[in-house]
Design a protein around this nucleic acid. Structure first.
Ligand SMILES: [Zn+2]
Ligand SMILES: [Zn+2]
Ligand SMILES: [Zn+2]
Ligand SMILES: [Zn+2]
Lengths: 140, 140
DNA sequence: TCCCGATTTGAGAACCGTTCTCGAAAGGGT
DNA sequence: ACCCTTTCGAGAACGGTTCTCAAATCGGGA
């Protein structure tokens, strides 16, 4: 995979966010910076990064794919519904439990998806709960 | 909510499946039975049932919504990737863990999503793995 | 039973995130 | 510079879902 200007731009844009962002949001950020990158290229690059395990993907309630640069080890997410603030969490017991459940029912090639949603401390404190962006995170 | 012929048909169609099915699959089943129900009505009825907590919803990897009549208590699913065979599973320890993690980070109004995917015993045994339907489940 | 307002239906259009198309542009090895 | 492959990108296409709105249906009261 060639490190083209476009791919570098998408990858750097991802790093500018601490929370999960959609392909279109990333494209918008690049546009506002006058980085000319086609939307199709943003989609292609994000898919490639996800396939390579360099970013995590999760679907929001609208079915939209959201991307985030995460640590390399297996983990799950605690995500604020209001602002998107994300915490990576690990639970060895949960990992064991899912494997045990699958074995118990004879299922093989097991994987799992686990996300925790809630309202983060910042959003709990603020009187008007935001719905369109993070509180104090870089986004451009 | 009026118990119309259409809503009854959708509800009964759901009961004919043991695994998760899409709105379009349910619509197809009704058509093949000469139950005249519009696709929009199928979507509306499934949404209403999901809102009422009468059916569980999960999104497949394509972002499609799948529906299943489940038990009323909180549970998760062990789903076969190949044929869709579904087992309801419960894990009190996981429930405790998610609450603890959320509290630890100060998140409130916590919910979570957890699905386990794998290959069921029947699909492991069969030589040509099916990709379009369950093994020996009612679907008509 | 008949009437009437409220609810429900459904064919098709609209919506929207995503993927595909394919000719143009860019890159790298020689 | 040349060639061949990869990548790009504007716009079309795709597919699941939702919306539109006129027609059908329902339920309750007269
Ligand atoms: Zn992650
Ligand atoms: Zn895990
Ligand atoms: Zn269920
Ligand atoms: Zn649970």
């Amino acid at each position: 995979m060639r490190p083209t200007r476009q791919r570098r731009a998408v990858s750097e844009a991802l790093s500018a966010f601490d929370d999960f962002r959609s392909a279109q949001q990333i494209h918008d950020l690049l546009c506002s910076r006058d980085d000319k990158v086609g939307l199709a290229t943003v989609y292609r690059t994000l898919s490639a990064l996800a396939d390579a395990g360099e970013v995590d993907v999760l679907r929001n309630e609208d079915g939209e794919s959201l991307y985030r640069r995460c640590s390399a080890t297996h983990h799950h997410h605690l995500v604020c519904r209001a602002c998107g603030a994300t915490v990576e969490v690990e639970g060895p017991a949960v990992e064991r439990w899912t494997r045990a459940i699958a074995r118990e029912h004879g299922y093989a090639q097991v994987s799992h998806e686990l996300e925790i949603f809630g309202t983060c401390p910042a959003c709990l404190g603020s009187h008007d709960v935001p719905h369109d962006g993070p509180h104090d995170r870089a986004d451009g």
